[in-house]
């Protein structure tokens, strides 16, 4: 259905060229919103929408942007989209918007956005840019979900706010690992994800 090139643009960022664990972009929010699965999911979706939309918009106006002020133009496009998304979230999912607090606004300075706009949207047409934006957004969301899954499961015994570990385990002496809820653990977990990802990909190359 899709040609090889479009397939690469869309699926490459999910694994081999992942924006978080390979290119190390957008770390700030990836670490901060992953205490629970729900805000991580919302954040992943929000970033995917914003990357895809801003890629398309910048790609459409790329020939009219003067080179010297392009960063400011890109920032304004992104800031407008982020404002839209945050207003929508405040209207329909107020508690999640409050949980994300400043990190929602910080999508503006998320390096994935600027990186994709500079590296891809400025030189490619709108359709390819859309696919590239979707792929990168999903690659980012994937890592967020993995980290949040581990942190919420082991830190609170819950997933998406529902108790997953049975009460009988706690009765038998199992305890939640409070470490998982602390900021430091997010960093160490992402380090481990990078480790696993590299080890797996190196083996596949050989």
């Amino acid at each position: 259905m899709l040609s090889q090139k479009t397939k690469d643009t869309l699926l490459g960022p999910l694994n081999a060229n992942n924006p978080v664990v390979v290119q190390i972009l957008g770390i700030c929010s990836a670490l901060a919103v992953t205490v629970q699965l729900k805000p991580a999911l919302v954040m992943g979706i929000a970033v995917t929408i914003i990357v895809a939309m801003s890629n398309v918009i910048v790609s459409l106006i790329r020939n009219t942007i003067p080179m010297r002020v392009r960063i400011i133009v890109q920032l304004v496009v992104v800031a407008a989209l982020v404002t839209l998304v945050s207003e929508v979230l405040k209207a329909f999912a107020y508690d999640v918007a409050m949980q994300l607090s400043v990190y929602l606004g910080l999508i503006i300075t998320n390096c994935i956005l600027m990186g994709r706009l500079e590296a891809f949207a400025m030189t490619n047409n709108a359709w390819d840019s859309l696919l590239d934006g979707l792929g990168n957004g999903l690659g980012y969301a994937l890592i967020l979900v993995i980290v949040a899954f581990v942190r919420e499961l082991f830190g609170a015994g819950q997933l998406l706010g529902f108790q997953v570990l049975p009460q009988s385990w706690y009765a038998a002496g199992y305890e939640n690992n409070g470490m998982m809820l602390m900021p430091a653990m997010a960093l160490i977990l992402v380090g481990c994800v990078i480790w696993a990802h590299r080890a797996y990909n190196d083996k596949e190359k050989k």
């Binding site: 602390m182 430091a184 653990m185 960093l187 990078i194 480790w195 080890a199």
Partner: peptide, 23 residues
């Protein structure tokens, strides 16, 4: 450092440990 962990992997873990200390 183990090979797949070299570079950014170990850097993350170091930052994590520093964050623990700062807590």
């Amino acid at each position: 450092v183990p090979k797949p962990l070299q570079g950014l992997g170990i850097t993350f873990i170091v930052v994590g440990l520093m964050a623990l200390a700062f807590m």
